[in-house]
Design a protein around this nucleic acid. Structure first.
Lengths: 222, 222
DNA sequence: TAGATTGTTAATCGATTAACAATC
DNA sequence: TAGATTGTTAATCGATTAACAATC
């Protein structure tokens, strides 16, 4: 069988769903029953039509004049993203960033549960970081099979990223959340989500250049 | 004066530049003088034409048949992003993620230097996290002015995000790298880069659903 | 009823991709 | 010279935005 490149309908919409989810949970906490796309758009600084289109992919149906039922909308988004059931994951590389992710409580809210961490550094074996035990990387294949874990979060040094990724795939890992700056070369059936902080920093830097530019221009014109 | 929404040419291209930079530095380390867009595209799994378009925004000029000069291309990207000069930044909120970012050495390579951390928790005042001192948040306005710091990295609890952001803007901060899940409401002249891990997780979750779907479909057809 | 909001269908906009002449 | 690669101009693709009938 040939694996087609995974096609996900409207990726930009999928990326915006967590922002809706966060807002909706806040609104739910205040006891609100219904919210209109217009209200949501104002809170998140989006176009009303974009909100309606985004929410439509989850299958939610709203009431004209009234808006969307808040609780049902939360459920619809969580179900759509598969965040209604908890998925177990491994974390590979217990350095600074890895430790921070182990301490981040927000993942559980998104259906992700880090059940074990792995490292190559002997002095870390058996350590517990934020209630998660660190194992030698070599034990991963066995544990992955026994615990039926399909997802790995990679926070390892760039120099080791490719070889460790290959090792993970051999061990049956199907999805990798890649926090290294390396573009991994893996079989087409492996799902890789590249999370590179430098991308966001590039955009921030560029936008700041432009505002600085504007200020300079203004100064010149005076 | 009215501030127009900051317009940055071809944002997707800007986001890809750090990946080119990382690869090019690797190639430079091997002593390579020239690299073609075709070679780069194979390494990063992109279309050759996309590589050429992306690199063109930096102003680099290549040689037909030969490719692009590696060192000059690195310089062109760094200059384009403003990463050739170091910019000082503050980090607000020294929890798990904040500490991890303080320990992350990669920022310096991208022209970002975190000179001080701030927190509201008294027990952290005076502490040093990865060689960076933690100050009371109330000292920020004074230090921002004296040190001419324009950029803040926000790793604070969601519940405090908006009020702290307002405080930062009052203190003269012009750019905020926002690691909270909150959509901040700030004046239009403030540059905000929202870095929400949940966005990437949403995409990963959705893609994994699809592969699982395919596997289920295959199983059914057998 | 009157009117705000939904959801659909069409138009616009911008990014990606294709085609190809210029060039080293 | 021959041919791979660049850079430009045009075509395609997909996401965003607009328009508007349906509806509560």
């Amino acid at each position: 069988m040939e694996y087609a490149k995974v096609k996900v309908a409207n990726l930009p919409s999928v990326r915006r769903l967590p922002a809706y989810l966060h807002l909706l949970k806040q609104l739910e906490a205040t006891g609100l029953d219904f919210v209109s796309g217009t209200q949501i758009s104002q809170e998140l600084k989006l176009e009303p039509i974009q909100v309606r289109k985004d929410l439509a992919i989850t299958g939610i149906v709203g009431k004209p004049r009234i808006g969307f039922p808040v609780t049902a909308l939360i459920t619809a988004i969580e179900t759509f993203l598969g965040w209604d059931n908890t998925t177990d994951a491994f974390l590979i590389g217990s350095g600074h960033l890895g430790s921070a992710l182990l301490g981040y409580q927000g993942f559980k809210e998104h259906g992700l549960n880090i059940v074990a961490a792995f490292d190559n550094a002997e002095e870390k074996f058996g350590q517990t970081i934020h209630d998660t035990e660190v194992f030698p990387l070599e034990k991963l294949p066995d544990l992955a099979e026994r615990m039926h874990v399909r997802i790995a979060i990679m926070t390892v040094p760039a120099s080791e990223a490719q070889s460790i990724a290959d090792f993970l795939v051999d061990a049956g890992i199907e999805g990798i959340w890649n926090f290294t700056p390396v573009s991994l070369r893996l079989p087409a059936n492996i799902v890789v989500q590249h999370e590179d902080l430098a991308c966001g920093l590039a955009v921030l830097s560029k936008k700041l250049q432009h505002t600085q530019q504007e200020l300079d221009d203004t100064a010149c014109n005076e």
